[in-house]
């Protein structure tokens, strides 16, 4: 757009003129409204303009759109969503969380193995950097395996609710690594376990519990 933006300062008349449309629709704040009404009381051109704008608003109110056939439209959208889902399934591998219980449990078993190996590697690497006066690490890392029935949106919500972000995964087994502030790790872990959408949650930084 090549629109030149006008700075609306200057005379009270010009300022009020620019505010009139929103005086007419009743959305000005107190100060602006007082300014407009004070000027309107003594300015016939602005009174005419306000009357014209009010007529315009009345026309908009009368010119109501025909009621949309919402049921038909909702049906059309449902079809479109279904088609898109089918298309995604046809062109991409089925996400692990939609593959059913059997694969899910296989994923859990694999994840457990990865956790054991991962934890052992992590301890070996981390041990070399510990000092006597060293502070606790600022972030904790959890390994999480979501229930196969959990949707992607629910996963995102759970991660957000835990104040975490995904730093790894999904592994072939479908496990994710999430990082979050150490101070909130225990609470997040309980929350994830209690959510009903997580089949496994383990800490990678020494806080692991059976």
């Amino acid at each position: 757009m090549n629109g030149r933006v006008i700075k609306f300062e200057g005379s009270a008349h010009a300022q009020v003129d620019r505010l009139l449309p929103w005086w007419v629709n009743g959305t000005l704040d107190e100060d602006e409204r007082a300014l407009v009404e004070q000027h309107l009381a003594e300015c016939p051109p602005c009174q005419h303009e306000a009357a014209w704008l009010r007529g315009l608003q009345e026309q908009y109110a009368e010119d109501d759109a025909p009621a949309a056939d919402v049921t038909r439209a909702a049906r059309r959208l449902r079809r479109r969503l279904a088609n898109e889902t089918l298309h995604v399934h046809a062109t991409a591998p089925t996400p692990w969380w939609r593959q059913g219980w059997r694969l899910g449990w296989l994923a859990v078993a694999q994840a457990a193995l990865i956790i054991v190996l991962g934890a052992s590697l992590f301890h070996q690497r981390a041990a070399g950097y510990h000092t006597l006066g060293g502070a606790e690490p600022a972030n904790a890392v959890l390994v999480v395996v979501f229930d196969p029935q959990t949707s992607e949106a629910q996963m995102r919500q759970l991660v957000r609710d835990s104040h975490a972000h995904i730093v790894g995964g999904p592994t072939e087994a479908g496990a994710y690594l999430i990082s979050l502030p150490s101070s909130g790790a225990a609470a997040a872990r309980s929350q994830l376990q209690g959510s009903g959408h997580v089949t496994l949650v383990e800490s990678l930084d020494g806080g692991a519990q059976p």
Binding site: A65, V70, A74, S151, E152
Partner: peptide
């Protein structure tokens, strides 16, 4: 709707359809 609840999506559509159409 963010949790892919189709029923909520249709309710939202019913609520907003006429307004959006206009």
């Amino acid at each position: 709707v963010a949790s892919e609840d189709m029923e909520a999506f249709e309710t939202l559509y019913r609520l907003y359809g006429p307004r959006l159409q206009r």
